[in-house]
Structure formats: structure tokens, C-alpha cells
């Protein structure tokens, strides 16, 4: 119990970040039109790929004779990169079509 309380007081800044991020996350997408639900989900998917940073730290800290850490860390880096790169590219592909659409719309209305 004591250790949990200590954890809270030691990490109070992080806990504030968590709480504020919860409200921010809700607030920021609150008025999203349904047209953008799929790209938004995909974009959010890419953003949680930030877990790659953890994978890089694991990998970079691994001792050169610790094969478990090296192999799992390596896998984690690959998977995390897949999440980040794949996520952003897929989202961009979806949104590219929306953009070309609004452009042609403008030219047709002129």
C-alpha cells in the first residue's frame, strides 16, 4: 500500500498528464463528422505507434549477450515501426482522396 502511495507522489506529474490527456482526447475529436471516422481511427492508430519509443529503448539498453532481450526487442522495433509507418501511410492514402475531391470541387464551382 505504502509503495502504491509512493508511486503516486513520485509520478504525480505523469498522472496529471494522463488525466488532462483523457479530457483533451475526448474534447479534440468531439465534433468529428462521420465522414472522417475511418481516417480518424486510422490516424489515432498511427499515433499509438509511439510505443515504438519504448521498443527502441529496450533494444538500445539490451546487453549484447542477452539474446532474449535482443531478439524480442528487435521484433518489438519491427512491429512498432509497422504500426507507425503503416498507420500514417494508410491514413494519408485515405485522406489524399478527400483532398483531390475538394480541389476538383473548387475548380468545378469556378
Amino acid at each position: 500500500m505504502q509503495s502504491i502511495l509512493n508511486f503516486f507522489s513520485e509520478n504525480i506529474q505523469l498522472i496529471y498528464i494522463v488525466i488532462l490527456s483523457v479530457f483533451l482526447g475526448i474534447e479534440v475529436i468531439g465534433r468529428v463528422p462521420s465522414v472522417l471516422h475511418t481516417p480518424l481511427m486510422s490516424g489515432a492508430n498511427a499515433i499509438h505507434g509511439v510505443v515504438i519509443i519504448g521498443a527502441i529503448i529496450v533494444m538500445g539498453k539490451a546487453e549484447t549477450n542477452n539474446y532474449l532481450a535482443l531478439i524480442l526487442g528487435f521484433l518489438a522495433v519491427i512491429l512498432g515501426t509497422l504500426n507507425v509507418v503503416g498507420g500514417f501511410v494508410v491514413t494519408d492514402r485515405m485522406l489524399e482522396m478527400f483532398k483531390s475531391k475538394s480541389k476538383s470541387q473548387k475548380t468545378s464551382s469556378k
Partner: peptide
């Protein structure tokens, strides 16, 4: 911090979605 902001933002926004 960036992992927390990114992760929790998506956690909250994803739940709302």
C-alpha cells in the same frame, strides 16, 4: 511523457469514437 500523451490521447479519443 510523449508515450503517455500519445497513448492516453488515443485511449480517450478511441473510447469516445
Amino acid at each position: 511523457q510523449v508515450m503517455i500523451t500519445g497513448g492516453i490521447l488515443v485511449g480517450a479519443a478511441g473510447t469516445l469514437l
